[in-house]
Design a protein around this nucleic acid. Sequence first.
DNA 1: CTGTTAGCGCTTTCAC
DNA 2: GTGAAAGCGCTAACAG
Lengths: 348, 348
Amino acid sequence: MKRNSPHPTLSQVARKAGVGTTTVSRVINGGDRVSPKTLARVRRVIETLCYVPNLAAQTLKGHRTKTIGLVVPSIADPFFASCAEVVQAIARANDSMLIVTVTANDSRTEIENLNLLIRHRVDGLIIVPANSQSPALRELLDRIAMPVVAIDRPVAKSAIASVVADNLIGAQTATQHLIDHGRKRVVCLTGESTLYTIRERISGYRKAIESAHLTPIIDTSVKDYKSAEYAIKSLLDGPNPPDAIFSTKNSTTIYAFEVLQRFNISVPGTIALLGFDDFELASTVRPSISVIQQPVEEIARRAAEILFEQLFDERKTGSRLFSKHPQPIRMHTRLIQRSSCGCVPQIS
Amino acid sequence: MKRNSPHPTLSQVARKAGVGTTTVSRVINGGDRVSPKTLARVRRVIETLCYVPNLAAQTLKGHRTKTIGLVVPSIADPFFASCAEVVQAIARANDSMLIVTVTANDSRTEIENLNLLIRHRVDGLIIVPANSQSPALRELLDRIAMPVVAIDRPVAKSAIASVVADNLIGAQTATQHLIDHGRKRVVCLTGESTLYTIRERISGYRKAIESAHLTPIIDTSVKDYKSAEYAIKSLLDGPNPPDAIFSTKNSTTIYAFEVLQRFNISVPGTIALLGFDDFELASTVRPSISVIQQPVEEIARRAAEILFEQLFDERKTGSRLFSKHPQPIRMHTRLIQRSSCGCVPQIS
DNA sequence: CTGTTAGCGCTTTCAC
DNA sequence: GTGAAAGCGCTAACAG
């Protein structure tokens, strides 16, 4: 037995074509400096043998794996799924493959994932940090000499470039919009307030409320339908029931909507509803739900582009440049006016 | 300059620890046959240097990349996103990473993706074939000596294992259910009838209709809201307006729902609606929409498990076994009874 | 234009 | 227990 691997090797091709290995190498790398005749012959042999270059071997020399890593909390989440789709497209356009790993927002899992990706010697990394503040993450990322771009949440105190939605201004706009509709008691409904994005959104809400000299009412207890029901019920039964809800994320918006629907509370009549982040059926439900829309694709695209720029610069200069983007790049959000805030009269 | 790579090498570790490379190799591979003292010392050096084994080099010897490829039409699609999530989890549990590529259901892109994955020498492949019938795909897959499992759609005339939903029986059940509700004119609304899944679902519809001695009414023209509107309007204005709609996929169900809502047609009063494939807000909209639910996670899990079994067998026996699963594995679907078919009285 | 050759970082006999 | 040495498949000088 000569070879047990199912894949023919470059030198087999060389032998069969009656040329040196260098020539074959040149052929598979574009075919420069090879005579047309030889080129054609080698190409034919490659076809015949179904030869496919072994990337591991190329990597061992060239130091590029043509793979980038994407580290997200979840793939099933529509937001991150869209990110993944865009990133994979741009990776492909740059002759790279995409390895996806999921963290479930757990810092330990995240570090594990990163170490695995480092083992795989990915050329670069796009990451949605489980915890923006984590020192362990910052250190790891600063240590590895590899282009990294953060998405959706920055890495605090680090030089790592990041692309995020303008959560603060988005939330401020949302809240202000509710106020402009004449609402005086706007409650901010939210869960997990440890996440960077959520904290920013709460700040935006606060800012709008304060500049309108209203009282902030923040309920951070929503994590499922049950808790949403309890929260809303309590608020409604209280001394000063709210007349509007600003919810800081998708699932919260949906729970709130379901509770309101269940209790037959008129929306936007009795309570106006405005959520952060758009979702597929927001315009299909009745009333349709107004939201702050994040430019998901743009965020992912921008991040991927920055990553490949860094990769390119690195290859040209031979060493890592300091980030051109020390500050998070904030992408504009958009207010989508539908019925639940009182903008569009209900159709049916 | 000695080393420009940011990563220390095994032999650097060996030198610094004052041992041979073999020993270090043993340490990073579990530490068997190494004295506790040496082991501890080497481990310390590894820590200090932040040494991470280079997978490319290991691969070059051991012939395993610890990566598997997933080829799907889209990542943004919830169905495939869920698949990806599950597959990545199982890959991780088997010490492998997941490379995801997307085809947009285009056969050419699919072949390209596969070739790239082969270059990367992935250990195995999970694929959602763009076209079940494609001979090019079948040949490529049969040629490469690598475990492959198809998901959602089988690869026709090949020995490749596949895990799919039981589309035919699911659709038959759906249609029968509508008939059981006393509906006599059940229309099947669909688009792209070239896809395996859709064809199967149409067959299931046919089967149910025929055994009830009713007339099949199939409209394959739905691809967006506009076409759905036109289709439904035409049907409704025709001589024998339908009293029920069975839609073969998510987007079609949603378009149909929106059209019905827009025209203020009572559901399920005038027209009952039942769709194939569940979706997030199906129970939130009013009326809530009854659907045939596919066991997405189970399908993906089963496929991934089979893949890793094959991988394991291959490693043990040193060669590829013939598939233990020549026939597609069909996973049971489930009828979720909600309001739109007439099962659950509307709440609000 | 083309071939020879020396490794890339690791695993693995095989001898000590 | 441990190490020396021979490659895995490929690229990149360097010499023809």
